[in-house]
Each structure stands twice: as C-alpha cells, then as structure tokens.
Amino acid sequence: MNALLRIDPRGLVLPVGLLVLAEVFARATNLQSDALAPPSDIFVSGIAALADGSMLYATWQTLANAGFGLAIGFSIGMALGILMGLFAPLNRLLEVTVEVLRPIPSVALIPIALLVYGFGHRLEFSIVAFATMWPALILTRSAIAGIEPRLIEVSRALQLSLSARIFKIVIPAALPRIFVALRLGVGISLIVAVTVEVTTNPMGVGYKMMEASQALRPGLALAYLVWVGILGWAVNGLMLLIQKHLFGPAANIEARL
C-alpha cells in the first residue's frame, strides 16, 4: 500500500516539465490546430465532459463491455485450461488446434462479429472474449502444471471425486497464478474494448474519442485519450492492489505468454 503511494519526486520532473513546455509552446505560437491543443484546454474540455456525464456514461459502456467479455472469455479459457492441465491426453490432443487458433489477431474477427451481431454490445463481448480466452487458457494450464505433485497424490489417496479434486485441491493451489492471469486479462480486455470502439463499434470511450477528433475538437479528443490512459492505469493498479491483498508474496511470479 505504502509502496504504491510513495512517489519518487524525480519521476515527476519529466511529465510536469513536458506539460509546462507544451502549454508555453501553445500559448507562444498561438496554436491553431485540428490535432493538438494546449494542456489547459484539454483539462477544461475533460472537466466539462466529466461534469455533463457524457464521459462517465461512455466509460461505463466501455468497462461493462470489457468486463462482460472478459467474464465469458476468461471462464471458457480457465475451464479449458483446468481440463487440459489435469488430463495430459486432452492437452496433447488439442495442442495443434490451440496453436493454430491462438495467433489469429483478435481484431481480424471484428468484421465477422460485425456480420453476425451488427453494432452493439455483443460485437464487443465476442471480440473481448476471444482475445482474453487464450491467455486464460495458457496461464491456467501452466498454473496447474506447476502444482506440487504431492497434492495431486494426496487427492488420489483420499479418493476424491473429480469435482472435489478440482474445487478442493487444484483451484486453491493454482489460484495465485490464475489471478495473475486474470490481472493480465483485465488489461487485455480494456485494450481490446477500446480498439473495437475506435475501429467499428459506435459506443464507449473509443468511439467518443474518434467522434471528438472528427468534429475537430482536439481538446476533447485528447482529454479522452488522457482519460483512457488514467483508466488503464487505475484498473491495473487496482488489480495489483487486490492481488497483493489477497495473495501477498504467493503471487509474485512473472506471467509470461
């Protein structure tokens, strides 16, 4: 907690300096641009959009889309990951399928989802679900592979049923690493949701940003850009905090894909 709040003042020099420099530059050259705006203008536009609720509503849409898509994708990925981690034959049987389907860029599926669902929530759910499913699968599988083998032996000796084995032994033992996967998935879901909104879906912060930019309101567009950055940073920080609180040092593992 304290480590997160403690800020090295040297780290502030660069962002604050750049902000001041941009402001001075914009004022000195009397900036008239369709793309850039002085920081003070961005700030004023951002506060105005926050005050009239439009920014918060767009944020709610984006977060809901990302969250629901993540819930679908992560559950499927985690279930498959648990099964593939527990049953080696299944893992080997699905190997080629997973390796072939996983590298498909999620954005390539946007046109397909657009054909099937049209604009709206379901378009975004499906893309986010596809994108978050694979890291959930891969990381859950490796989390299960990393379980102390003696725990599995104990469960055999106790003759636990499959569901008891999964819920009493496997999931608790793999939970810290699965949570790390979830943290990663949260970040991915937000990125993908914004990407879908920027490219096609007319809702959420991504679309608002696109709209403001096309309406030649650079102050508002940049305010949304900053807001998306704050959002990503806050969500990531929150997940780190939860992870630290729930698992402590048990979750100090590098998640690598």
Partner: peptide, 13 residues
C-alpha cells in the same frame, strides 16, 4: 497500460 489503438484518432488528426 495505454491502449495503442487509442492514439489512432490523434494520429489521424
């Protein structure tokens, strides 16, 4: 954590 696609509108402008 900033999504790279979020800079697309700025880049287009």
């Amino acid at each position: 954590p900033l999504p790279a696609s979020a800079v697309v509108p700025l880049a287009i402008a």
